[in-house]
Design a binder for these strands. Structure first.
Lengths: 253, 253
DNA sequence: CCTTTCCGTTTCTTATTTAGAAATGATAAC
DNA sequence: GTTATCATTTCTAAATAAGAAACGGAAAGG
């Protein structure tokens, strides 16, 4: 929101990203028409960009149905990118054990552009919902990982975050005022973990733990479960196990 | 090699990919000069593309060092792409157990553009080498996963593969003639698994198993170990476990 | 079996964008 | 404080892109 207002170079590149994003958010592989209608570009232009994207192996086209989808070649870029933040290698054994001991799904996230990006997940065998995808994004203010991280922010960082964020309702429980959010983060700080009580997704309850050492914030992890499986006894037990995991991780950094 | 020779649309897009590839293959985050020199583009042009890539969240720039690296936002595209081929969910529990029972690293790959793309890996605790990265590519003719898949190809498919591939030496052991490769694949077919005896990487020995059902090839998995840990006894045991895993996977498809 | 419709593809021309030489800043090295 | 080196900005001829219109081909409907 404080971006330079100068026009960006690379019209085709920008449009190509629109196409990639369209494919990213499509349930099923779309055809040329669907894409060009969906984005509001003319067919010839869309076709030309798609043809180039295909040649570059960013997309693939089904020869029969003529439908487009993202190409697995893209995997390499994301994996390389996430290597830069390599908490994963440190964190994996601990979180994998935490999954086993809690029986619930564990997520690992980092901050990227004021949002949480899901870096990895350790799924519980009983997990029904797999809405989330590695690389997927969520709000900081409505998720347990986000709130765990926000609770470690300085006042300046927090002010900057609020400055760049609209607290929009995602579910009926989402916190939508700065004051309420700041109060919640205060509680989080005292308690040592954050709680997302159906604030990001209905029926889903999460607790979140920040991974931070010597002032530096590395990311956060959370334990996610359907609300009916998160009674106060269970939650107490999970928190205890997770706090031990958090300590173990921080010691390894 | 039978591509249309027409000039491709989207100059900037093509150049942007060159930059992304340069970042993908850089050990350390490069600066503008390194990138422009490395690719052979002028600095102003490179800067302009990088600035747009940054705005699109494909790259990030370190404010202090001015160095560029790939942005984690890219994760989402690759993950979505690999979902299309979702053998992973079917295969994960079995391969994870195979890792535990063999104590060695298991790789899962699929074919993309006549090469193997590493879709997932299940690392052994004793794995020293982590040269490979998810999304990484290797030759079909020099890798065990590739040869396992080639052994399931029809004559036409194989002819087409050879037509589009140079059998270049990767290590002293790499097979570099069609005849030798075809003979090796014959052996593979009879034996039920492929062997890569330092053909792709010195000191590394792998066995590969194709995942195929009703004529359709879904991918392959391999067991990788340093050669000194792959004596014939150990290998026999591993093959036995892997064949059971292969059967289990195919039954689940 | 012919007609219509609906996409995908090609062509063409004006308007827009780009590429890079050169100049300028900024910063680090000496 | 001078020099070297890299990042950034400016500017304009030359290259590229955008989209209207026309075309082609396959599938649907009568």
């Amino acid at each position: 929101m404080s971006e330079s207002t100068n026009k960006l170079y690379g019209t085709v590149l920008i449009r190509a990203k629109e196409i990639l994003d369209y494919l990213l958010n499509s349930e099923t592989a779309p055809t040329l028409k669907e894409i060009s209608d969906g984005i509001g570009m003319t067919k010839p232009t869309t076709l030309k960009i798609l043809t180039t994207l295909e040649a570059l192996k960013f997309v693939t086209r089904d020869e029969n149905t003529k439908a487009y989808f993202l190409d697995v070649s893209l995997l390499a870029y994301g994996e390389k990118a996430s290597e830069e933040f390599d908490i994963r290698s440190i964190v994996t054994p601990t979180l994998s054990r935490l999954r086993d001991s809690t029986g619930e799904t564990i997520n690992l996230g980092i901050v990227n552009d004021n949002e949480i990006v899901l870096l990895d997940k350790f799924e519980s065998p009983q997990s029904i919902f797999l809405k989330s995808r590695i690389g997927g994004r969520m709000n900081m203010y409505s998720s347990s990982m986000g709130k765990a991280i926000l609770s470690a922010y300085s006042d300046t960082e927090m002010a900057d975050y609020l400055d760049h964020t609209d607290l929009k309702k995602v579910t009926p429980n989402t916190i939508t005022t700065s004051d309420a959010l700041i109060a919640d983060l205060q509680t989080t700080k005292g308690r040592g973990y954050s709680v997302d009580d159906e604030e990001n997704e209905v029926d889903i309850f999460c607790v979140g733990f920040v991974i931070t050492k010597y002032q530096k914030i590395y990311g956060a992890f959370s334990i996610t479960a359907p609300k009916f499986r998160m009674g106060s006894e269970k939650r107490k037990k999970i928190v205890q196990l997770a706090k031990a995991a958090q300590k173990e991780i921080i010691d390894k950094i």
